[in-house]
Simulated scan of single mutants.
Amino acid sequence: MTHSEHTGREEIQRMLDRTVAEVDVPGIVAEIRDADGTWFGSAGVADIETGRPRQEGEHVHVGSAGKAFTAATVLALEAEGRLSIEDTVEKWLPGALDVNGYDGNKITIRHLLSNTGGLFITGLAPELTRRYATRSALAEHRFDIWTTDQLLELTVSQPPIHEPGTAFAYSNGGFYLAGMIIEKVTGNTYAEEVARTIVEPLGLTHTYVRPADETGYPQPHPRAYSGLFMKDGVDPTDITADNWESMFEEPGLPPLDTTEFNSSWAWSAGNVISTTSEMIKVFNAFASGSLLPSAQHREMWTMVSTEGGNWMPHSTYGLGVFGLDPAVTGGLRLRGMAGSMQGSHLFVMGTPDGERTIAVHTNTEFKSWQVLFQALQAQFGIPAVPGV
């Protein structure tokens, strides 16, 4: 159903309307699946120029929610006896980390998938920000295709920031390495293994790893709009985890249409196309344990603290997935997957049994954690989170 008289649906719709009005989001959708059935709501537009509204069944980029696909694929291979997440990187990719102070004998696959390997924050790599951080740079490089060799170079282009296993730091590089291990173990492409271990078993028909040369979306889809740019003249080498916010453009500039954009730089760190409906199906399978054997399901949801890790507040992280601290949810256990990139932000959250789930997508990148937490307040009745 697309309209509902159930208590709470109206509050979700108010949240959507408020987000468009207050958070500078062109369009937003929410899809809910729970004991009352399925509900879909939207606000804003899919296309700024035509005013076309958002609709059900749109194909969208899920960003770093794709990390959960990588983790689940690795865990499926472990269940098949083809690797262990305690294997070192050196075992499968000998010599790959013999640079810049890294040690592949100390970093395990578990470290890669939990963001605890000590790899620097790859999203701040000067080579990446040089290509995409300003409007003029993105216009020049928006169709660049990244190879796995280039992604490996990016992963180790800066020294480690801590010893493996001692802290959390959100890094795409660990998932690039995991994707390379998947290909080394199986002899298949990363996309083929995601299809074999996740897409086909779950009967998904609108979900796939985006090919390296693809720059658009299947129909239907919203236009993608980006307003997250550094000021012209910013030197990427000056950007740090502490000063990056001050480097951004002043608010109020018109967004840039980034619908036609090559996202091969994301690869196994998050280059999946899907729909909100199918992402709910994926999340419910991951959260409830219906896809992976029990041992691998427990590993996926064995959490570490994200304190000081430049990521979501009040959260813990598993293998490509996250949870919220029950202290801020009124004791309710909530699990999730989330991702943001140029022109797209998606999160899916729900209860561990997969019985109550919400998926939200905006056709612009991450703007504020308040979108997520206000959606959870509306759907699950959690308390307001201080500071968000």
Rank of each mutant, 00 (worst) to 15 (best):
L124P: 00
G101D: 08
K91L: 06
M300K: 03
M312C: 07
V388N: 07
E163C: 04
G104S: 01
I109V: 11
F283I: 06
F261T: 04
G118E: 00
L253D: 10
E11A: 15
S268D: 07
A76E: 08
Y132C: 05
Y170P: 00
G101N: 06
T186D: 08
I280H: 00
Y225T: 05
L324W: 14
N271G: 11
S226A: 12
M312T: 07
G354I: 14
I85G: 02
L112I: 00
A71G: 11
R18M: 11
V348G: 06
L253Y: 09
S305T: 15
L253H: 15
E183V: 08
T134N: 11
L77N: 02
R356K: 15
A359G: 14
A96T: 03
E56H: 10
D353W: 14
P293I: 02
Q370T: 15
G27D: 07
A139M: 15
N115W: 00
A76S: 15
G117L: 01
R356P: 08
A224L: 14
F380L: 12
G123P: 01
Y208T: 08
K106S: 02
Q296P: 06
P313R: 01
A43N: 05
P255F: 09
D213G: 13
E5W: 11
A46I: 10
P352D: 14
L376S: 09
T155D: 08
I273V: 15
E78R: 06
R333P: 11
G63I: 02
L113F: 03
L202E: 03
L253N: 13
G51K: 09
G350W: 09
T259P: 03
A72I: 07
M15V: 12
A68H: 01
T207E: 05
V385M: 11
S157C: 14
W301N: 01
P94K: 01
V209Y: 10
T88Y: 03
M247S: 13
L138Y: 11
L112H: 02
G339H: 09
F175Y: 13
A30P: 10
G350H: 09
T306C: 04
G165L: 01
T189M: 10
M230A: 14
M341P: 03
L228H: 13
A287N: 03
K281H: 04
S157M: 06
G187I: 07
A287F: 02
P160N: 07
A167Y: 02
E90T: 04
T155Y: 07
R33V: 15
G354A: 13
